[in-house]
Design a protein around this nucleic acid. Structure first.
Length: 216
DNA sequence: CGTTGGATTGGCT
DNA sequence: GCCAATCCAACGC
């Protein structure tokens, strides 16, 4: 399967809100310790930036979020709710503390291994959520800080970027502070988007004649 | 040092 | 739709 060249460092060295929508359609590749290659096409992401109360980096560097303050193009893996790991891509410049959370992907290669990691599940549920995606790809604490640009265990290739007309945008899922920011992007019509519900404080006001929110 | 509450998920009412 | 599971930062005393 053709995956295309890797995304270069410069791709990540921009604001997370600029990088996030452009990550849709890109291929996340993972090489397991036994050599098995897994690949999944990103269909849902969320940006977290500096001065963002919802970001782990909001209160400055700690042992947990240290990777976020490092150079762009690295993987930030964190432990959540006592049982799940979630994966992010560090963006911006060193010391800034911004990243993009990888929320969902369409499995392309290595579905058997993904199903094994997840303890079964149909294809649509394999990577439909940040914890699920991380688990399906076999990404663990050792991968925290991995260099996506030069490393061999986890990386991102150009794939076929989702056209801007297919990119949809909402508020983020599961955040309280900073809930009004519409920093979640997903591919319209994709069956692999997570079931997570955006935290919308108010129903989005539409100018004229538009029906309410539209899902997918 | 004790308490609190998550960038979630899956199972049950 | 609701809630428990289960760890560990962050924060208050």
């Amino acid at each position: 399967m053709r995956l295309g060249p890797r995304l270069p460092r410069a791709f990540f060295a921009r604001p997370s809100t600029e990088v996030a929508p452009e990550l849709l359609g890109r291929i996340l590749v993972r090489r397991l310790p036994d050599g098995t290659r897994l690949a999944a096409r990103l269909v849902e992401v969320e940006a977290y930036g500096p001065d963002d109360p919802a970001s782990h980096a909001f209160r400055g560097p700690t042992p947990r979020n240290l990777v976020m303050f490092g150079p762009p193009g690295r993987l930030y893996v964190y432990f959540s709710y006592g049982m799940h790991l979630c994966s992010n891509v560090v963006t911006g410049h060193a010391g800034e503390g911004s990243a993009v959370l990888l929320r969902a992907a369409e499995p392309l290669e290595g579905l058997e291994a993904m199903a094994r990691h997840r303890g079964l599940g149909d294809v649509r549920r394999l990577c439909a959520g940040p914890g699920r995606l991380t688990q399906a790809l076999g990404i663990g604490r050792p991968e925290n800080g991995a260099d996506l640009v030069r490393g061999t265990d986890v990386f991102l290739t150009t794939g076929e970027p989702t056209s801007s007309s297919l990119r949809a945008r909402t508020t983020r899922v599961g955040v309280n502070a900073g809930a009004e920011r519409r920093w979640r992007w997903f591919e319209r019509g994709s069956a692999f988007v997570s079931p997570g519900r955006p935290t919308a404080p108010h129903p989005p006001a539409r100018p004229r004649g538009a029906t309410g929110s539209r899902r997918s």
